[in-house]
Design a protein around this nucleic acid. Structure first.
Length: 225
DNA sequence: AGTGCGATTGACT
DNA sequence: GTCAATCGCACTA
């Protein structure tokens, strides 16, 4: 049965359970894979938005593509929090990116959430994005953040606790998980640290990346993760 | 104190 | 396919 939203009284579907931090893998690449199929939940005064994670990028320890590669700076402090916290930053002066911190406290690493399959609050996402097409609402990290109205105010919040932004479990049918190089980076670009649901239309990136190539899987044995 | 640039997107040729 | 938008940060000096 629906229950009332604590702020607005708007009806909100019951049943979402926050992820337990103890269940989150410590290892960044494992966390990236683990987060596939989980829900991102956004609570706004206007209502609740949720979507299923279908694509993630891992930015692991010692990763030259990771923001923490050269140590701690004020902007990236959230990356060093206990796993399961939000690291939100802005890129190109325009777009916000949502990451989940990983590893143990004091270690700067995390997982970029790259795409969602919209579930709830689709009309709100359409309003925020000013487009209608379901497939494009949260396909890509910048679009995702825009659809959920994610900005720097959410940087550092605990995603394992109900609040304005949090992560929830979801009963989902096991789907094929693909692995590929990450999108939009130059350093350490050969590492296979992008994870996605194969044949899921809400995944971003060129189609060529989203097919499981046997040679890529073979290549995984030759590339460090 | 000055500056180059980015974990992207959307518009346009 | 190309390219501008847009700005705070991190790096150099």
């Amino acid at each position: 049965m629906p229950r009332a939203h604590p702020l607005t009284g708007a009806l909100e579907p019951a049943g979402h359970k926050a992820l337990r931090r103890a269940d989150l893998p410590l290892d960044t690449a494992s966390l990236a894979r683990y987060l596939l199929g989980k829900l991102v939940v956004r609570e706004l005064p206007q209502g609740l938005i949720s979507g299923r994670i279908v694509e993630t990028d891992a930015y692991i320890v010692g990763d030259a593509a990771g923001h923490a590669y050269r140590g701690m700076t004020p902007r990236i402090r959230s990356l060093f929090l206990k796993r399961g916290h939000a690291y939100v930053y802005r890129t190109y002066g325009i777009h916000y990116m949502l990451n989940v911190s990983s590893e143990t406290p004091g270690v700067g690493a995390g997982v970029l959430i790259r795409a969602l399959e919209p579930r709830e609050g689709i009309h709100l996402m359409q309003r925020h994005r000013r487009i209608h097409r379901l497939r494009d609402l949260a396909r890509g990290p910048g679009r995702l953040a825009a659809a959920l109205r994610i900005d720097l105010r959410l940087d550092g919040i605990d995603l394992c606790r109900r609040g304005p932004l949090w992560l929830a479990r979801d009963e989902f049918e096991p789907a094929g998980i693909g692995q590929s190089v990450r999108i939009g980076i130059t350093r350490d670009a050969e590492r296979l640290l992008r994870f996605y649901f194969v044949d899921n239309p809400f995944v971003s990136g060129p189609g060529s990346l989203n097919t499981v190539h046997p040679e890529s899987i073979h290549g995984a044995h030759h590339h460090r993760l």
